[in-house]
Design a protein around this nucleic acid. Structure first.
Length: 572
RNA sequence: GCGGAUGUAGUGAAGGGGUUAUCACCUGAGGUUUCCAACCUCAUGUCACGGGUUCAAAUCCCGUCGUCCGCACCA
């Protein structure tokens, strides 16, 4: 443990020293939970995000959207975040332990969630709630603990309360009608969004693991709950995942995704599918496969919206850390927004195989009687009669109208009528499966797993074994000496590479060649080229592979082409 | 949020009421060097922030902020 702690300190030091990840606002004293991505980290994160986007977009039925980070309060009330995030805490005066106030009054009130701080304090005092830890009954006043950053839209007094979004998912739900049109009314489809999320954590700790402003990347995949999903799991037939089910349901085991879905360990095949695709992504960006496991949320731990949730956890310097949450949210969100707004565009249309002929017997008002009796209310009466679920044969009876009044219906006012209609399908709320990725946590573990300490000539030697597809810098340009025109040639090559799409190089001419290799290795540059006197004669340069130090000569044009097409490894 | 520890160049550390704050590595310049942290010379850069005590504060005191550990919390 001490050894791994020391390694963690060396890693964090290196990340600061080399401009990968640094505490933000440091000259003003710093702010916990906020980090800068420096010249290496910024590009590294960009590439990780791009890999993520490409990974999901490659599926063909997924599009990218982007929505505001400032979110009106009503959206987050509907989604449940305002309630969830507005916990009150009560602190015991004698032992100073803090507990959630609503948990303390559990059982003393039918719905403790909705109580204000004063109401909570009143119940705690009246019922002389004992501290679960020390048994005392004296409590400090309940204090709200809002985990969202609040702000106001609009200046002056007329502003509207808003929050910085705690997740990007709501953006996708807001855009459901547009997505549904985009996909020509056909499920399943998905939308991804990658951006900032905000949570005003009480005490951010553990470096990049718990942040106040963080990079999240979420996918919402909308499905028809009545259609059996068709997923091809053959790609993972030989792979077994480490699965940790809810302890009440089963023991940890190793199993492929298809079998786990078949045996109902993973409750929905689409969740299994996204777990498998997530595994591919993580391994593809350089996470050690043996350090990935999927853990099922326990019933009590499940987020307010989820019906089944599996976290992809990655093992690193901080132990097992949740980096991806793959949740089956059911129709929770769309239903909540529909209820809150009354908007009917959050549904999808499911055609029946055969049109359905619906026979209905209704009580229809006789216009000649209803009209004169009820006059301007006659229309309302007719509507109410048609909507009656249970037909009565007792008269007279009271009929409630939508305007809140009620009228008395006599037998002679109505007649039974059979009507027949043909229904071709129905509107339903799609279900959604949501893989949500903490980009910063994944980036941290990519660095953690790539950080390789060894020895070279008796000296400690550090190599960041980043996957070339996400390494911040593709190639280091090293003139053997900065004279005789070697530096000019090196600079030309540097310019050419930087001007090539998706490639970045850096020029380093100071210090011995070994020192410069070491500097490049430390930040994970996969390739280094040196320019020597032979380069001046025939143009060729030496290319060195980071991971084994192997070298060969190559023409700069061929090098750029091979780098751009990612075929350079094949040359060795 | 509570308790404990702590904050000195980019990194890691030593020191400490007194005039120019020390060391190593790193970084930069020059020299040397024909491919894996070599060597020589020189140089840049630091006492977290704010207040107090004092003739004098980086040092003592208080507060704030940050960091680490424990408790609590953790879409």
């Amino acid at each position: 443990m001490d050894g791994s702690h020391a390694r963690l300190e060396r890693l964090t030091s290196m990340l600061r020293r080399r401009g990968v990840i640094l505490p933000a606002f440091e000259i003003h004293g710093g702010v916990a939970g906020l980090f800068d991505f420096g010249p290496i980290g910024g590009r590294l994160r960009r590439r990780l995000k791009n890999s993520w986007l490409e990974h999901w977009m490659s599926q063909g039925d997924i599009v990218e959207i982007d929505s505001p980070t400032i979110t009106p309060e009503s959206v987050l009330i509907a989604s449940g975040h305002v309630g969830e995030f507005n916990d009150h805490m009560s602190e015991c005066i004698s032992c100073e332990r803090a507990y959630r106030s609503d948990h303390l009054v559990d059982g003393k009130h039918p719905n403790p969630d909705i109580l204000t701080a004063d109401e909570l304090d009143a119940i705690i005092a009246e019922s002389s709630i004992h501290c679960p830890s020390c048994g005392a009954t004296d409590w400090k006043p309940a204090r709200p603990m809002n985990l969202m950053f609040s702000t106001r839209i609009g200046a002056m007094k007329g502003g509207r309360t808003a929050y910085m979004r705690p997740e990007t998912a709501q953006g996708m739900f807001m855009l459901f009608p547009a997505l549904y049109r985009h996909f020509r009314n056909r499920l399943p489809f998905g939308a991804v969004q990658s951006g900032k999320g905000y949570r005003n954590e009480i005490s951010p700790r553990q470096g990049m693991i718990r942040l106040r402003e963080f990079n999240m990347a979420e996918l919402e995949y909308f499905i028809d709950p009545e259609v059996k999903p068709q997923h091809d799991f053959s790609k993972w037939s030989a792979i077994e995942f480490s699965l940790v089910p809810d302890p009440e349901l089963g023991q940890p085991l190793k199993m492929g995704p298809e079998q786990a879905a078949t045996e109902n360990i993973i409750r929905h095949p689409t969740v299994a599918w996204f777990m498998a695709r997530t595994w591919d992504f993580l391994v593809g960006v350089g996470i050690d496969p043996s350090k990935i496991r999927f853990r099922q949320h326990e019933g009590t731990e499940m987020a307010h919206y989820a019906t089944d949730c599996w976290d992809a956890e990655i093992q690193g310097s901080y132990g097992w850390v949740e980096c991806v949450g793959i949740a089956h949210r059911g129709c929770y969100d769309l239903a909540a927004h529909e209820t809150a707004t009354g908007d009917k565009n959050l549904r999808a249309w499911r055609p029946y195989d055969e049109p359905m002929i619906v026979d209905k017997t209704i009580l229809a008002g006789k216009g000649s009687v209803i009209g004169p009796v009820f006059r301007d209310k006659a229309g309302l009466v007719n509507t109410a009669l048609e909507e009656l679920e249970v037909l009565t044969s007792e008269f007279p009876f009271k009929l409630s109208l939508v305007d809140g009044t009620s009228v008395t219906i006599e037998e002679d006012m109505i007649e039974e009528k059979r009507i027949q209609s043909t229904e071709h399908g129905e509107w339903f709320l799609p279900h959604v499966v949501e893989p949500a990725f903490g980009i910063d946590r994944i980036l941290w573990h990519v660095l953690d797993h790539a950080f390789d300490e060894s020895e070279k000539g008796g000296e400690p030697y550090t190599v960041l074994r980043l996957n070339p597809s996400i390494a911040a810098i593709d190639v280091a340009i090293l003139p053997l000496m900065e004279k005789d025109g070697l530096d000019d040639l090196a600079n030309n090559i540097h310019q050419t590479i930087c001007a090539t799409k998706n490639l970045a190089s850096y020029y380093d001419g100071s210090g011995s060649i070994g020192r410069r290799y070491a500097r490049a290795d430390e930040v994970g540059v996969p390739w280094a080229i040196t320019i020597d006197h032979e380069s001046l004669q025939n143009g060729s340069v030496t290319i060195r592979r980071r991971d084994d130090g192997k070298q060969m000569r190559i023409q700069p044009d061929d090098l750029v082409a091979a780098l751009a097409s990612d075929t350079i490894s094949a040359l060795f």
